[in-house]
């Protein structure tokens, strides 16, 4: 903060780089405002979501490489321990070299919440919040594939490696790719699902999350899938890196 102009300069620079390199290609899509019903185990009342921009596909290895080239503090050899666990970018062969077998256009994984956030911030973006992610995630596919089937099939599989390229499957009706079926994704408020019962409030939420989830799974398989996502998020710590956990960025409309 010694030089107050620096963040501004960086922002302008980042914007310049971003605009001069349309080949990065991760276009954003304006998601219309609307509401969605939370999975039954949490809260059945519809939740409103404002209009916002969301990356068309998860951030890829190539895109993440451009970021670490500009931000050496996020090299795998120099990242601070509190911001990423020891397996950060574990599959990359070097600081500036991702594993060629996993491909430039495969989603980047093994990144912590802090890293994902720093990436988005470097482009003037942010991580989506759970509500935004789930709202878009409930939109049906453009083709006839049934959302529930795709999700549950994927949850039932052992994870694929190397990861496939992004945008190989059908987009949803908003034009968003790969929310289900390839990787899990970080969200800004991942730490808002309680699982460790530290207070009475936590305990109540736990009951909703687990008992409710278990009970509703028989009636509605899509709720079961959502339950898996909420439970997975709540098991995370911000510095964790996971082999099938990546991210995409969002942005406010204005």
């Amino acid at each position: 903060m010694k030089n107050p102009k620096r963040p501004l300069m960086l922002a302008v620079l980042a914007l310049g780089v971003f605009m001069s390199l349309p080949s990065w290609g991760n276009g954003m899509i304006l998601i219309p405002a609307g509401s969605f019903r939370m999975p039954a185990f949490l809260d059945k009342t519809p939740r409103k979501v404002n209009s916002f921009y969301l990356d068309k596909h998860p951030v890829t290895n190539a895109e993440y490489l451009s970021f670490v080239e500009q931000h050496p503090e996020w090299h795998k050899s120099s990242v601070k321990k509190i911001f990423a666990d020891a397996n950060y970018l574990e599959y990359w062969s070097g600081d500036l070299d991702f594993d060629k077998t996993s491909g430039a256009s495969s989603p980047v994984v093994r990144v912590s919440w802090y890293a994902a956030r720093a990436y988005c911030a470097s482009l003037g973006k942010r991580l989506p919040v759970i509500d935004e992610w789930e709202y878009v995630g409930q939109m049906p596919f453009k083709d006839k594939n049934d959302l529930k089937t795709v999700i549950l099939e994927w949850y039932g599989q052992s994870s694929e490696w190397p990861l496939p390229s992004v945008m190989k499957r059908s987009a949803n009706t908003a034009g968003i790719y790969d929310q289900h079926g390839v990787i899990w994704e970080w969200v800004e408020d991942f730490n808002s699902s309680m699982v460790t019962g530290e207070s009475r409030a936590d305990a109540a939420l736990d009951r909703n999350l687990f008992c409710g989830g278990g009970a509703s799974s028989a009636a509605d398989p899509s709720d079961y899938a959502a339950f898996m996502r909420y439970a997975f998020r709540s098991s995370l710590q911000a510095k964790y890196t996971v082999k099938n956990l990546g991210f995409r960025c969002a942005k406010d409309k204005d």
Binding site: N191, S192, A204, Q237
Partner: peptide, 18 residues
């Protein structure tokens, strides 16, 4: 996140939190 605190806004008035 660094303090291991989880929190969630539950309505206009209240938060669930660690």
């Amino acid at each position: 996140t660094l303090l291991g605190i989880k929190y969630k806004k539950i309505d206009e008035m209240d938060y669930d939190h660690s």
